[in-house]
Design a protein around this nucleic acid. Sequence first.
DNA 1: TGATCATTATATGTATACAGATGATATTTA
DNA 2: TAAATATCATCTGTATACATATAATGATCA
Lengths: 213, 213
Amino acid sequence: MTRVADQLIETLKNEIHAGVLKPGDQLEEAVLAQRFAVSRTPVREAVRSLVECGLLETRSRKGAFVRVLSAKEIMDLFEVAAELEGLACRLAAERLTDEAMQAINAGFRECETAASSGDAEAYSRANLTFHTAIHHASGNRRLVEQLSEFETRINPYRSMPYKMRNRLAQSTQEHREIMTAIFDGDSAQAADLMRSHMMLQGQRLPLILQNLM
Amino acid sequence: MTRVADQLIETLKNEIHAGVLKPGDQLEEAVLAQRFAVSRTPVREAVRSLVECGLLETRSRKGAFVRVLSAKEIMDLFEVAAELEGLACRLAAERLTDEAMQAINAGFRECETAASSGDAEAYSRANLTFHTAIHHASGNRRLVEQLSEFETRINPYRSMPYKMRNRLAQSTQEHREIMTAIFDGDSAQAADLMRSHMMLQGQRLPLILQNLM
DNA sequence: TGATCATTATATGTATACAGATGATATTTA
DNA sequence: TAAATATCATCTGTATACATATAATGATCA
Protein backbone atom coordinates (compact mmCIF):
# COMPACT_ATOMS: atom_id res chain seq x y z
CA MET A 1 0.00 0.00 0.00
CA THR A 2 2.89 2.34 -0.49
CA ARG A 3 1.60 3.26 -3.90
CA VAL A 4 0.97 6.86 -4.83
CA ALA A 5 -2.10 5.82 -6.81
CA ASP A 6 -3.76 4.42 -3.69
CA GLN A 7 -3.46 7.74 -1.90
CA LEU A 8 -4.86 9.53 -4.92
CA ILE A 9 -7.83 7.17 -4.96
CA GLU A 10 -8.48 7.88 -1.31
CA THR A 11 -8.17 11.63 -1.70
CA LEU A 12 -10.36 11.83 -4.79
CA LYS A 13 -12.99 9.59 -3.21
CA ASN A 14 -13.13 11.87 -0.22
CA GLU A 15 -13.40 14.99 -2.35
CA ILE A 16 -16.26 13.49 -4.31
CA HIS A 17 -17.86 12.30 -1.09
CA ALA A 18 -17.49 15.73 0.49
CA GLY A 19 -18.82 17.51 -2.57
CA VAL A 20 -15.59 19.33 -3.40
CA LEU A 21 -15.80 17.54 -6.73
CA LYS A 22 -19.32 17.65 -8.05
CA PRO A 23 -21.08 15.42 -10.60
CA GLY A 24 -20.07 16.57 -14.06
CA ASP A 25 -16.75 18.11 -13.00
CA GLN A 26 -13.89 17.24 -15.31
CA LEU A 27 -10.62 15.85 -14.02
CA GLU A 28 -7.62 16.67 -16.16
CA GLU A 29 -4.72 14.32 -15.72
CA ALA A 30 -2.05 16.99 -16.04
CA VAL A 31 -3.75 19.21 -13.48
CA LEU A 32 -4.09 16.41 -10.96
CA ALA A 33 -0.52 15.32 -11.62
CA GLN A 34 0.79 18.80 -10.93
CA ARG A 35 -1.43 19.27 -7.90
CA PHE A 36 -0.15 16.11 -6.24
CA ALA A 37 3.35 16.56 -7.61
CA VAL A 38 3.43 13.20 -9.33
CA SER A 39 3.49 12.07 -12.93
CA ARG A 40 0.41 11.27 -14.98
CA THR A 41 0.98 7.54 -14.59
CA PRO A 42 -0.33 7.06 -11.04
CA VAL A 43 -3.04 9.63 -11.75
CA ARG A 44 -4.30 7.50 -14.61
CA GLU A 45 -4.26 4.41 -12.42
CA ALA A 46 -6.35 6.16 -9.81
CA VAL A 47 -8.80 7.34 -12.44
CA ARG A 48 -9.12 3.80 -13.78
CA SER A 49 -9.99 2.52 -10.34
CA LEU A 50 -12.56 5.22 -9.72
CA VAL A 51 -14.17 4.58 -13.08
CA GLU A 52 -14.59 0.94 -12.18
CA CYS A 53 -16.03 2.01 -8.81
CA GLY A 54 -18.63 3.98 -10.68
CA LEU A 55 -17.53 7.33 -9.29
CA LEU A 56 -16.04 8.59 -12.53
CA GLU A 57 -16.77 8.03 -16.17
CA THR A 58 -14.45 8.49 -19.12
CA ARG A 59 -15.53 9.54 -22.55
CA SER A 60 -13.18 8.44 -25.30
CA ARG A 61 -10.44 11.00 -25.86
CA LYS A 62 -12.31 13.43 -23.66
CA GLY A 63 -11.07 12.52 -20.25
CA ALA A 64 -12.61 11.74 -16.89
CA PHE A 65 -15.66 13.31 -15.30
CA VAL A 66 -17.35 12.86 -11.98
CA ARG A 67 -20.19 10.59 -12.89
CA VAL A 68 -23.62 12.11 -13.26
CA LEU A 69 -26.46 9.83 -12.28
CA SER A 70 -29.87 10.28 -13.81
CA ALA A 71 -32.92 10.17 -11.59
CA LYS A 72 -33.63 6.69 -12.90
CA GLU A 73 -30.13 5.51 -12.07
CA ILE A 74 -30.43 6.89 -8.56
CA MET A 75 -33.74 5.16 -8.08
CA ASP A 76 -32.23 1.89 -9.36
CA LEU A 77 -29.34 2.25 -6.94
CA PHE A 78 -31.69 2.91 -4.08
CA GLU A 79 -33.84 -0.06 -4.95
CA VAL A 80 -30.82 -2.36 -4.82
CA ALA A 81 -29.47 -0.74 -1.67
CA ALA A 82 -32.81 -0.95 0.09
CA GLU A 83 -32.93 -4.66 -0.59
CA LEU A 84 -29.39 -5.18 0.69
CA GLU A 85 -30.05 -3.09 3.78
CA GLY A 86 -33.00 -5.36 4.37
CA LEU A 87 -30.79 -8.41 3.95
CA ALA A 88 -28.35 -6.96 6.46
CA CYS A 89 -31.18 -6.61 8.97
CA ARG A 90 -32.39 -10.14 8.39
CA LEU A 91 -28.92 -11.59 8.88
CA ALA A 92 -28.27 -9.34 11.86
CA ALA A 93 -31.44 -10.64 13.48
CA GLU A 94 -30.42 -14.22 12.81
CA ARG A 95 -26.80 -13.92 13.91
CA LEU A 96 -26.89 -11.26 16.58
CA THR A 97 -23.95 -11.17 19.00
CA ASP A 98 -23.52 -9.12 22.14
CA GLU A 99 -20.94 -6.81 20.62
CA ALA A 100 -23.08 -6.23 17.54
CA MET A 101 -26.06 -5.49 19.74
CA GLN A 102 -24.10 -2.91 21.69
CA ALA A 103 -22.79 -1.28 18.51
CA ILE A 104 -26.27 -0.99 17.05
CA ASN A 105 -27.63 0.36 20.28
CA ALA A 106 -24.83 2.91 20.48
CA GLY A 107 -25.61 4.03 16.95
CA PHE A 108 -29.24 4.40 17.83
CA ARG A 109 -28.46 6.48 20.91
CA GLU A 110 -26.33 8.74 18.75
CA CYS A 111 -29.31 9.22 16.43
CA GLU A 112 -31.58 10.02 19.35
CA THR A 113 -29.21 12.65 20.66
CA ALA A 114 -28.73 14.30 17.30
CA ALA A 115 -32.45 14.23 16.57
CA SER A 116 -33.41 15.81 19.87
CA SER A 117 -30.86 18.57 19.39
CA GLY A 118 -32.05 19.05 15.83
CA ASP A 119 -28.51 18.87 14.46
CA ALA A 120 -28.97 17.61 10.90
CA GLU A 121 -25.24 17.31 10.28
CA ALA A 122 -24.74 15.22 13.40
CA TYR A 123 -27.78 13.13 12.56
CA SER A 124 -26.32 12.35 9.17
CA ARG A 125 -23.21 10.96 10.84
CA ALA A 126 -25.22 9.11 13.48
CA ASN A 127 -27.41 7.64 10.80
CA LEU A 128 -24.34 6.23 9.07
CA THR A 129 -23.07 4.81 12.35
CA PHE A 130 -26.37 3.07 13.00
CA HIS A 131 -26.63 1.57 9.53
CA THR A 132 -22.98 0.52 9.47
CA ALA A 133 -23.37 -1.24 12.79
CA ILE A 134 -26.17 -3.31 11.28
CA HIS A 135 -24.13 -4.05 8.19
CA HIS A 136 -21.35 -5.47 10.33
CA ALA A 137 -23.81 -7.39 12.45
CA SER A 138 -24.76 -9.33 9.33
CA GLY A 139 -21.43 -11.13 9.48
CA ASN A 140 -21.22 -10.84 5.68
CA ARG A 141 -18.17 -8.89 4.56
CA ARG A 142 -19.23 -8.79 0.96
CA LEU A 143 -22.47 -7.18 2.03
CA VAL A 144 -20.63 -4.62 4.12
CA GLU A 145 -18.44 -3.66 1.18
CA GLN A 146 -21.35 -3.49 -1.19
CA LEU A 147 -23.30 -1.16 1.06
CA SER A 148 -20.25 0.98 1.72
CA GLU A 149 -19.78 1.40 -2.02
CA PHE A 150 -23.40 2.37 -2.33
CA GLU A 151 -22.99 5.01 0.34
CA THR A 152 -20.04 6.48 -1.54
CA ARG A 153 -21.92 6.56 -4.79
CA ILE A 154 -25.14 8.01 -3.56
CA ASN A 155 -23.73 10.58 -1.17
CA PRO A 156 -23.06 13.35 -3.70
CA TYR A 157 -26.75 13.35 -4.49
CA ARG A 158 -28.23 13.64 -1.07
CA SER A 159 -28.14 17.22 0.05
CA MET A 160 -29.39 16.83 3.55
CA PRO A 161 -32.71 15.07 3.35
CA TYR A 162 -32.88 15.61 7.08
CA LYS A 163 -33.56 19.28 6.89
CA MET A 164 -36.93 19.06 8.48
CA ARG A 165 -36.91 18.42 12.17
CA ASN A 166 -39.93 16.21 11.70
CA ARG A 167 -38.02 13.81 9.55
CA LEU A 168 -35.27 13.47 12.15
CA ALA A 169 -37.76 12.34 14.76
CA GLN A 170 -39.59 10.07 12.38
CA SER A 171 -36.37 8.51 11.11
CA THR A 172 -35.25 7.86 14.67
CA GLN A 173 -38.56 6.20 15.42
CA GLU A 174 -38.12 3.96 12.39
CA HIS A 175 -34.63 3.11 13.60
CA ARG A 176 -36.06 2.16 16.97
CA GLU A 177 -38.54 -0.23 15.42
CA ILE A 178 -35.88 -1.77 13.19
CA MET A 179 -33.54 -2.22 16.14
CA THR A 180 -36.28 -3.80 18.22
CA ALA A 181 -37.12 -6.27 15.48
CA ILE A 182 -33.46 -7.23 15.16
CA PHE A 183 -33.04 -7.67 18.91
CA ASP A 184 -36.24 -9.72 19.02
CA GLY A 185 -34.85 -11.99 16.34
CA ASP A 186 -37.77 -11.14 14.08
CA SER A 187 -35.72 -11.23 10.90
CA ALA A 188 -38.56 -10.88 8.40
CA GLN A 189 -39.98 -7.88 10.22
CA ALA A 190 -36.57 -6.26 10.54
CA ALA A 191 -35.94 -6.65 6.81
CA ASP A 192 -39.34 -5.25 5.86
CA LEU A 193 -39.03 -2.25 8.15
CA MET A 194 -35.60 -1.43 6.83
CA ARG A 195 -36.71 -1.67 3.21
CA SER A 196 -39.55 0.74 3.89
CA HIS A 197 -37.23 3.05 5.80
CA MET A 198 -34.81 3.12 2.89
CA MET A 199 -37.42 3.67 0.21
CA LEU A 200 -38.79 6.60 2.18
CA GLN A 201 -35.34 8.15 2.18
CA GLY A 202 -35.03 7.46 -1.51
CA GLN A 203 -38.20 9.29 -2.30
CA ARG A 204 -36.87 12.35 -0.55
CA LEU A 205 -33.79 12.66 -2.71
CA PRO A 206 -34.21 16.11 -4.19
CA LEU A 207 -32.92 15.25 -7.64
CA ILE A 208 -35.57 12.64 -8.10
CA LEU A 209 -38.24 15.18 -7.34
CA GLN A 210 -36.69 17.68 -9.71
CA ASN A 211 -35.88 15.70 -12.81
CA LEU A 212 -39.06 13.69 -12.74
CA MET A 213 -38.23 10.30 -14.12
CA MET B 1 -13.83 2.72 -26.69
CA THR B 2 -11.01 2.21 -29.10
CA ARG B 3 -8.67 1.68 -26.20
CA VAL B 4 -6.35 -1.29 -26.09
CA ALA B 5 -6.90 -1.60 -22.35
CA ASP B 6 -10.61 -2.21 -22.84
CA GLN B 7 -9.94 -5.15 -25.11
CA LEU B 8 -7.46 -6.55 -22.62
CA ILE B 9 -10.06 -6.30 -19.88
CA GLU B 10 -12.54 -8.19 -22.02
CA THR B 11 -10.06 -10.88 -22.97
CA LEU B 12 -8.76 -11.43 -19.46
CA LYS B 13 -12.29 -11.50 -18.04
CA ASN B 14 -13.22 -14.18 -20.53
CA GLU B 15 -10.14 -16.23 -19.75
CA ILE B 16 -10.87 -16.09 -16.05
CA HIS B 17 -14.50 -16.88 -16.74
CA ALA B 18 -13.56 -19.81 -18.96
CA GLY B 19 -11.05 -21.14 -16.46
CA VAL B 20 -8.00 -20.59 -18.65
CA LEU B 21 -6.75 -18.40 -15.85
CA LYS B 22 -7.37 -20.07 -12.52
CA PRO B 23 -7.57 -18.59 -9.04
CA GLY B 24 -4.07 -18.02 -7.76
CA ASP B 25 -2.46 -17.72 -11.19
CA GLN B 26 -0.01 -14.86 -11.46
CA LEU B 27 -0.18 -12.32 -14.25
CA GLU B 28 3.12 -10.76 -15.17
CA GLU B 29 2.85 -7.43 -16.88
CA ALA B 30 5.73 -7.99 -19.25
CA VAL B 31 4.37 -11.37 -20.31
CA LEU B 32 0.91 -10.01 -21.01
CA ALA B 33 2.40 -7.02 -22.81
CA GLN B 34 4.41 -9.25 -25.10
CA ARG B 35 1.54 -11.64 -25.64
CA PHE B 36 -0.79 -8.88 -26.80
CA ALA B 37 2.01 -6.97 -28.51
CA VAL B 38 1.41 -3.79 -26.55
CA SER B 39 3.36 -1.89 -23.93
CA ARG B 40 2.98 -2.38 -20.21
CA THR B 41 0.92 0.79 -19.88
CA PRO B 42 -2.44 -0.49 -21.14
CA VAL B 43 -1.77 -3.82 -19.43
CA ARG B 44 -1.47 -2.07 -16.11
CA GLU B 45 -4.68 -0.16 -16.76
CA ALA B 46 -6.52 -3.39 -17.46
CA VAL B 47 -5.10 -4.98 -14.32
CA ARG B 48 -6.22 -1.98 -12.27
CA SER B 49 -9.75 -2.35 -13.58
CA LEU B 50 -9.88 -6.06 -12.90
CA VAL B 51 -8.59 -5.54 -9.39
CA GLU B 52 -11.40 -3.12 -8.73
CA CYS B 53 -13.84 -5.64 -10.22
CA GLY B 54 -12.65 -8.14 -7.66
CA LEU B 55 -11.31 -10.56 -10.24
CA LEU B 56 -7.65 -9.90 -9.48
CA GLU B 57 -5.72 -8.89 -6.42
CA THR B 58 -2.35 -7.19 -6.25
CA ARG B 59 0.18 -7.65 -3.53
CA SER B 60 2.58 -4.76 -3.13
CA ARG B 61 5.60 -5.19 -5.36
CA LYS B 62 4.52 -8.73 -6.08
CA GLY B 63 2.18 -8.25 -8.96
CA ALA B 64 -1.31 -9.37 -9.88
CA PHE B 65 -2.96 -12.71 -9.17
CA VAL B 66 -6.32 -14.15 -10.05
CA ARG B 67 -8.20 -13.68 -6.86
CA VAL B 68 -8.70 -16.68 -4.62
CA LEU B 69 -11.94 -16.70 -2.69
CA SER B 70 -12.21 -18.54 0.59
CA ALA B 71 -15.25 -20.71 1.27
CA LYS B 72 -16.57 -17.99 3.55
CA GLU B 73 -16.18 -15.35 0.86
CA ILE B 74 -18.01 -17.53 -1.64
CA MET B 75 -20.82 -18.10 0.82
CA ASP B 76 -21.04 -14.35 1.44
CA LEU B 77 -21.18 -13.68 -2.27
CA PHE B 78 -23.91 -16.23 -2.73
CA GLU B 79 -25.92 -14.82 0.12
CA VAL B 80 -25.89 -11.39 -1.47
CA ALA B 81 -26.55 -12.75 -4.94
CA ALA B 82 -29.46 -14.87 -3.74
CA GLU B 83 -31.06 -11.79 -2.25
CA LEU B 84 -30.58 -9.79 -5.42
CA GLU B 85 -31.90 -12.62 -7.58
CA GLY B 86 -34.93 -12.56 -5.33
CA LEU B 87 -35.27 -8.83 -5.79
CA ALA B 88 -35.10 -9.28 -9.55
CA CYS B 89 -37.96 -11.76 -9.35
CA ARG B 90 -40.04 -9.45 -7.20
CA LEU B 91 -39.57 -6.54 -9.56
CA ALA B 92 -40.12 -8.74 -12.59
CA ALA B 93 -43.44 -9.86 -11.15
CA GLU B 94 -44.44 -6.27 -10.48
CA ARG B 95 -43.34 -4.83 -13.81
CA LEU B 96 -43.80 -7.68 -16.22
CA THR B 97 -44.08 -6.77 -19.89
CA ASP B 98 -44.95 -8.97 -22.82
CA GLU B 99 -41.44 -9.01 -24.22
CA ALA B 100 -39.97 -9.85 -20.82
CA MET B 101 -42.49 -12.64 -20.42
CA GLN B 102 -41.53 -14.12 -23.74
CA ALA B 103 -37.82 -13.89 -22.96
CA ILE B 104 -38.26 -15.63 -19.63
CA ASN B 105 -40.40 -18.30 -21.20
CA ALA B 106 -37.84 -18.84 -23.94
CA GLY B 107 -35.13 -19.26 -21.32
CA PHE B 108 -37.24 -21.77 -19.49
CA ARG B 109 -37.89 -23.79 -22.64
CA GLU B 110 -34.17 -23.89 -23.25
CA CYS B 111 -33.68 -25.28 -19.75
CA GLU B 112 -36.33 -27.92 -20.32
CA THR B 113 -34.72 -29.07 -23.55
CA ALA B 114 -31.24 -29.23 -22.05
CA ALA B 115 -32.52 -31.02 -18.97
CA SER B 116 -34.42 -33.67 -20.92
CA SER B 117 -31.38 -34.36 -23.08
CA GLY B 118 -29.18 -34.46 -19.99
CA ASP B 119 -26.67 -32.05 -21.48
CA ALA B 120 -25.11 -30.36 -18.46
CA GLU B 121 -23.09 -27.94 -20.55
CA ALA B 122 -26.16 -26.80 -22.45
CA TYR B 123 -28.14 -26.57 -19.24
CA SER B 124 -25.53 -24.28 -17.77
CA ARG B 125 -25.99 -21.91 -20.69
CA ALA B 126 -29.78 -22.22 -20.61
CA ASN B 127 -29.74 -21.54 -16.89
CA LEU B 128 -27.86 -18.29 -17.49
CA THR B 129 -30.32 -17.32 -20.21
CA PHE B 130 -33.27 -17.90 -17.91
CA HIS B 131 -31.80 -15.96 -15.03
CA THR B 132 -30.62 -13.11 -17.23
CA ALA B 133 -34.08 -12.77 -18.73
CA ILE B 134 -35.47 -12.27 -15.24
CA HIS B 135 -32.76 -9.76 -14.39
CA HIS B 136 -33.72 -7.64 -17.38
CA ALA B 137 -37.41 -8.01 -16.60
CA SER B 138 -36.73 -6.18 -13.34
CA GLY B 139 -36.26 -2.97 -15.29
CA ASN B 140 -33.37 -2.11 -12.97
CA ARG B 141 -30.11 -1.71 -14.85
CA ARG B 142 -28.02 -1.44 -11.74
CA LEU B 143 -29.39 -4.76 -10.61
CA VAL B 144 -28.61 -6.33 -13.97
CA GLU B 145 -25.01 -5.13 -13.78
CA GLN B 146 -24.62 -6.26 -10.20
CA LEU B 147 -25.83 -9.75 -10.97
CA SER B 148 -23.69 -9.95 -14.07
CA GLU B 149 -20.66 -9.06 -12.02
CA PHE B 150 -21.57 -11.73 -9.53
CA GLU B 151 -21.80 -14.31 -12.29
CA THR B 152 -18.32 -13.37 -13.46
CA ARG B 153 -16.89 -13.61 -9.99
CA ILE B 154 -18.43 -16.85 -8.93
CA ASN B 155 -18.05 -18.75 -12.17
CA PRO B 156 -14.46 -19.92 -11.67
CA TYR B 157 -15.62 -21.75 -8.58
CA ARG B 158 -18.53 -23.68 -9.89
CA SER B 159 -17.34 -26.81 -11.63
CA MET B 160 -20.57 -28.08 -13.04
CA PRO B 161 -22.97 -28.45 -10.15
CA TYR B 162 -25.37 -29.92 -12.68
CA LYS B 163 -23.54 -33.17 -13.04
CA MET B 164 -26.35 -35.24 -11.71
CA ARG B 165 -29.28 -35.68 -14.02
CA ASN B 166 -31.55 -35.42 -11.01
CA ARG B 167 -30.45 -31.91 -10.28
CA LEU B 168 -31.17 -30.83 -13.83
CA ALA B 169 -34.76 -31.96 -13.58
CA GLN B 170 -35.19 -30.52 -10.10
CA SER B 171 -33.66 -27.20 -11.09
CA THR B 172 -35.98 -27.00 -14.08
CA GLN B 173 -38.94 -27.67 -11.86
CA GLU B 174 -37.85 -24.86 -9.55
CA HIS B 175 -37.52 -22.60 -12.57
CA ARG B 176 -41.05 -23.48 -13.59
CA GLU B 177 -42.42 -22.54 -10.19
CA ILE B 178 -40.48 -19.28 -10.16
CA MET B 179 -41.70 -18.41 -13.64
CA THR B 180 -45.28 -19.18 -12.72
CA ALA B 181 -45.10 -16.96 -9.66
CA ILE B 182 -43.69 -14.12 -11.74
CA PHE B 183 -46.34 -14.51 -14.42
CA ASP B 184 -49.03 -14.63 -11.72
CA GLY B 185 -47.75 -11.37 -10.31
CA ASP B 186 -47.06 -13.06 -6.99
CA SER B 187 -43.93 -11.05 -6.26
CA ALA B 188 -43.31 -12.24 -2.71
CA GLN B 189 -43.62 -15.87 -3.72
CA ALA B 190 -41.37 -15.37 -6.75
CA ALA B 191 -38.69 -13.77 -4.59
CA ASP B 192 -38.86 -16.49 -1.95
CA LEU B 193 -38.68 -19.30 -4.46
CA MET B 194 -35.71 -17.75 -6.20
CA ARG B 195 -33.84 -17.21 -2.94
CA SER B 196 -34.32 -20.87 -2.03
CA HIS B 197 -33.31 -21.93 -5.51
CA MET B 198 -30.12 -19.92 -5.28
CA MET B 199 -29.17 -21.09 -1.81
CA LEU B 200 -29.59 -24.67 -2.94
CA GLN B 201 -27.13 -24.03 -5.75
CA GLY B 202 -24.79 -22.36 -3.31
CA GLN B 203 -24.71 -25.35 -1.05
CA ARG B 204 -23.62 -27.47 -3.95
CA LEU B 205 -20.53 -25.47 -4.73
CA PRO B 206 -17.80 -28.06 -4.31
CA LEU B 207 -15.25 -25.77 -2.71
CA ILE B 208 -17.59 -25.01 0.11
CA LEU B 209 -17.97 -28.67 0.84
CA GLN B 210 -14.22 -29.18 0.76
CA ASN B 211 -12.77 -26.33 2.75
CA LEU B 212 -15.41 -26.47 5.47
CA MET B 213 -15.92 -22.98 6.64
C1' DT C 1 28.77 -28.31 6.02
C1' DG C 2 25.50 -25.02 7.18
C1' DA C 3 24.08 -20.47 7.85
C1' DT C 4 24.28 -15.67 7.07
C1' DC C 5 25.28 -11.80 4.40
C1' DA C 6 26.08 -9.57 0.05
C1' DT C 7 25.29 -9.06 -4.68
C1' DT C 8 22.63 -9.39 -8.66
C1' DA C 9 18.61 -10.15 -11.39
C1' DT C 10 13.92 -9.39 -12.20
C1' DA C 11 9.51 -7.33 -11.84
C1' DT C 12 6.82 -3.59 -10.06
C1' DG C 13 6.15 1.47 -9.54
C1' DT C 14 6.99 6.01 -11.51
C1' DA C 15 8.51 9.44 -14.82
C1' DT C 16 9.06 11.15 -19.35
C1' DA C 17 8.62 11.15 -24.27
C1' DC C 18 5.94 10.46 -28.36
C1' DA C 19 1.60 9.88 -31.36
C1' DG C 20 -2.93 10.79 -32.58
C1' DA C 21 -7.42 12.82 -32.10
C1' DT C 22 -10.57 16.37 -30.78
C1' DG C 23 -11.85 21.08 -30.31
C1' DA C 24 -11.00 25.90 -30.83
C1' DT C 25 -9.52 29.72 -33.32
C1' DA C 26 -8.30 32.24 -37.19
C1' DT C 27 -8.42 33.11 -41.97
C1' DT C 28 -10.47 33.09 -46.34
C1' DT C 29 -14.25 33.23 -49.41
C1' DA C 30 -18.91 34.05 -50.89
C1' DT D 1 -20.87 39.66 -42.21
C1' DA D 2 -21.44 34.86 -41.93
C1' DA D 3 -20.05 30.34 -42.91
C1' DA D 4 -16.75 26.95 -43.98
C1' DT D 5 -12.28 25.20 -43.98
C1' DA D 6 -7.65 24.91 -42.48
C1' DT D 7 -4.27 25.24 -38.97
C1' DC D 8 -2.82 24.84 -34.38
C1' DA D 9 -3.04 23.82 -29.56
C1' DT D 10 -4.14 20.71 -25.98
C1' DC D 11 -5.27 16.57 -23.85
C1' DT D 12 -5.76 11.60 -24.00
C1' DG D 13 -3.64 7.11 -25.20
C1' DT D 14 0.59 4.48 -25.74
C1' DA D 15 5.48 3.48 -25.59
C1' DT D 16 9.86 3.65 -23.46
C1' DA D 17 13.17 4.72 -19.95
C1' DC D 18 14.47 4.95 -15.16
C1' DA D 19 14.17 3.88 -9.97
C1' DT D 20 13.40 0.85 -6.31
C1' DA D 21 12.17 -3.14 -3.77
C1' DT D 22 11.94 -8.09 -3.41
C1' DA D 23 13.79 -12.48 -3.97
C1' DA D 24 17.11 -15.71 -5.38
C1' DT D 25 21.71 -17.21 -5.80
C1' DG D 26 26.35 -17.37 -4.63
C1' DA D 27 30.20 -16.48 -1.65
C1' DT D 28 32.32 -16.22 2.74
C1' DC D 29 32.87 -17.29 7.47
C1' DA D 30 32.19 -20.00 11.56
